[in-house]
Amino acid sequence: MKTRDLAYVALFAAIVAVLGQFPPVPVPGIPVPITAQTLGVMLAGSVLGARRGALALLLFLTVVALGVPLLASGAGGLGVFVGPTAGYLYSWPVAAFVIGWLTERFWRRYNLAWALVANLIGGIAVIYAIGIPFTSLYADIPLSASAVGALAFVPGDVVKAVAASVVAVAVRRAYPVIELPTRRATAG
């Protein structure tokens, strides 16, 4: 890993942390307020690609585990990693990786539609596929009950996938990171 990749990974971990501090947005018709933290998961994959995106989330979770309360809920420490919804946290690096991997595949024709495909698959399907069974096993409840509990979050996550896709397409135009054919100029 080059030193610049270290910089990208650390700064994106910081972005995910900062997004978690944004106040939750209540959206009419959606049962739970939307927090911006999983937007960070989607953006990490969409902007940095698979490897660096996944590492950024691993790093973020490491810092949380070390005792810094950076989750949107205000939680931190090892407790959240053994709580009933820990599976969702564990899914984040995987989700960022899948989003990044898909984004890299789509990179040449990347647009809003492809971005949305990547973020819906990686940012929703993957996260729920890991989080729902985890809660079910861990809290000793049937899979269906765990899934029903998660349903309330789906509308918000779809909104986030759309938002992340719009942002990712704009950032790719302004400052593409995944493919760097030339070193970027610095002012002067």
Binding site: T3, A7, Y8, A10, L11, I15, L43, V167, Y175, V177
Partner: peptide, 17 residues
């Protein structure tokens, strides 16, 4: 988010250097 991400990516570039 768009200007924030672009600024942060530029910052990352210099930080790498």
């Amino acid at each position: 988010l768009v200007p924030l991400l672009v600024q942060v990516l530029q910052l990352a570039h210099t930080l790498g250097e």
